[in-house]
Amino acid sequence: MEKVLGLASDQGVVIFIKSTCCLCYTVKILFQEIGVDPLVYEIDHDPEGREMEKALAKMGCSSPVPAVFIGGKLLGSTNEVMSLHLSGSLNQMLKPYQTQT
């Protein structure tokens, strides 16, 4: 769990994914379209990936991936992200992390 928390606090927006997960890809693209360049960490390419997946589940992530952290705090997985996006709340949460264009 320490590794997950350490990585999650490395940057403002961090997404833990698996490289073969289509929902992970969708969430990553959503953030990029909002103007946020998240740190994307592929847990299936990490030797400790299974432990990281278990840690994300213990932290309360409904699905281990994608797991989205904003400001070092767990936001959730696809359902939470999409609900916030549809309500307009996600854009507000991400304003401090949007790249200037």
Rank of each mutant, 00 (worst) to 15 (best):
E2A: 15
L90Q: 06
A57N: 06
Q32L: 14
M1S: 13
M82K: 10
D10E: 14
E42H: 13
N79R: 13
F69M: 01
F16H: 05
I34C: 02
A57I: 13
E51F: 09
G35L: 03
T99S: 13
K54I: 11
L90M: 08
S19C: 03
G76V: 02
K54H: 09
T78F: 10
Y25R: 15
S19H: 03
T101K: 15
E80H: 07
K18T: 07
M1Y: 11
L75W: 01
P64Q: 10
V13S: 06
A8K: 04
S77G: 12
A55Y: 01
S9L: 08
Y41R: 08
L39Q: 00
A55I: 07
P96G: 10
A8L: 01
K58L: 12
H45F: 15
L56R: 06
T20G: 01
F16A: 02
L30Y: 11
Q11H: 11
N91S: 13
Q11P: 00
I29Y: 11
I29F: 08
A57R: 10
F31Q: 06
L94N: 04
T26F: 09
V14L: 07
R50M: 14
G6H: 09
L90P: 04
A57T: 11
F69R: 03
G72M: 03
L56E: 02
F16D: 03
F31K: 02
A57Q: 11
S62W: 06
I17K: 09
K58S: 10
E2N: 14
I29Q: 12
Q32F: 12
A57P: 00
E48V: 05
P66E: 02
Q92A: 13
P64H: 14
E51L: 13
C61V: 12
S63C: 09
N91Y: 11
L84K: 15
C21T: 02
L7R: 04
G6Y: 08
L23Q: 10
E33K: 13
K73V: 01
C61P: 08
M52A: 04
Q98G: 05
P38G: 03
M1F: 11
V27Q: 07
P64N: 08
P64A: 13
G76R: 01
I29T: 13
V27D: 08
Y97R: 07
V13P: 05
L23P: 01
V14Q: 03
E2W: 09
V68G: 08
T99Q: 13
C22V: 13
T78S: 09
D37I: 04
S89C: 12
I17T: 14
V36L: 00
L75E: 04
M93S: 02
P96N: 10
G88H: 09
Y41L: 08
E53C: 09
E42G: 09
C61G: 10
I43D: 05
L75T: 00
